[in-house]
Write a protein that binds this DNA or RNA. Sequence first.
DNA 1: CTTATATACGGAACGTTGTTCCGTTTTTTA
DNA 2: TAAAAAACGGAACAACGTTCCGTATATAAG
Lengths: 206, 206
Amino acid sequence: MSDKTGEIRPENEGKRRVRADAQRNLDALLQAAMAVFATAGVDAPVREIAEKAGVGIGTVYRHFPQRSDLIVAVFRQEVDACADAAPALAAAHDPGEALTRWMRRYVDFIAAKRGLGAALHSGDPAYEALPGYFKDRLVPALQSLLDAAVTAGVVRAGFDPVDLLRAAAVLASPSQDMGPEHGRRMVDLLVDGLRYGARLSPPPPA
Amino acid sequence: MSDKTGEIRPENEGKRRVRADAQRNLDALLQAAMAVFATAGVDAPVREIAEKAGVGIGTVYRHFPQRSDLIVAVFRQEVDACADAAPALAAAHDPGEALTRWMRRYVDFIAAKRGLGAALHSGDPAYEALPGYFKDRLVPALQSLLDAAVTAGVVRAGFDPVDLLRAAAVLASPSQDMGPEHGRRMVDLLVDGLRYGARLSPPPPA
DNA sequence: CTTATATACGGAACGTTGTTCCGTTTTTTA
DNA sequence: TAAAAAACGGAACAACGTTCCGTATATAAG
């Protein structure tokens, strides 16, 4: 599992404990921001998030000195949640089903990030570290599911998780021509492609 | 709404002419906007464009009621310029060379549009008509060059201009991982792919 | 429990944006 | 040349991200 959101660094040397209200507000802010970003996109006003969290504007900027810091925090939290879903799914389903379900989980995660792709490519240095974190957490998650599925013989070997994540992200990113359904279908098709010609081949999809 | 006197209509030229200073300012604005957008991206402040054009802010909004209208106008102007380059290149070079040069022209056009792709996918209805205009002007331009090259036997047939434009646009769009050189090289490679196995096959590229 | 103080809080205030409004200036026309 | 229509310029407004600081409060010490 990943760190709790507001934890203090490991080598915290005997300073005061984090105040309870501070921790509470930080959690409320992350939760409010997640909801607002999903509804109104990452360009939503900071004041709206503060209000939804029941907190003053100053408090937002105490925890997140810049608006982008809040976006980054929410993004990392959701990346963590997505990565942590992999072992859970692997434990609850057979390898093929686990892979399929995780990819759908990933697609939903990407699709909800309206406007974030734009922010990433805006050149703002605040988002520089995000792609790295993205890979560090998600590639191992997918890798493990992929390995299990290959070992079980339900998908072919030889595919790079990075390529799959990138392709799925592009397919799942919403645009004005195509709705979110399109992304889901195309990624399902992609996974079917992995299955094609595997050792244990089920009947071809309709 | 208020239609006490006839508005300026395409077929109606008996009414007042467009004032000379208005036309001059409109041209200056388009030119200034093009320069500023190329330098600072499409998010550049309106005041900066007004100043560069030697014009007040009110004048900008007289010609372009919304900021996005100015972006759209510049975009359409540059799409036109890119489309109009096709017949000129076709007249000045052999079909293969014309195709190559036009694709490079197109890549430069796309690469200079930093931030516009983001605006397009922002869901703002102001940009709804842009992709349609894009296709209407650029697809015929590329189609003609492609047909000529196929007839001359220097590229293979059977490629959809829409697919090529889309692929080249994606390849040429600058991102933080890869510089503009990457896009140019990949599109050159794409065009080399069109050449592969043509009737008149030149020696393979280095 | 009381007190002291580091910490966190709230929201007014600042600078920058897109956009609107209207008095003034300029061009066109009679 | 003078009236009218059109366009101009920039002050003014609203909304945004961000900063600042007086006030409130949780925690540690006595």
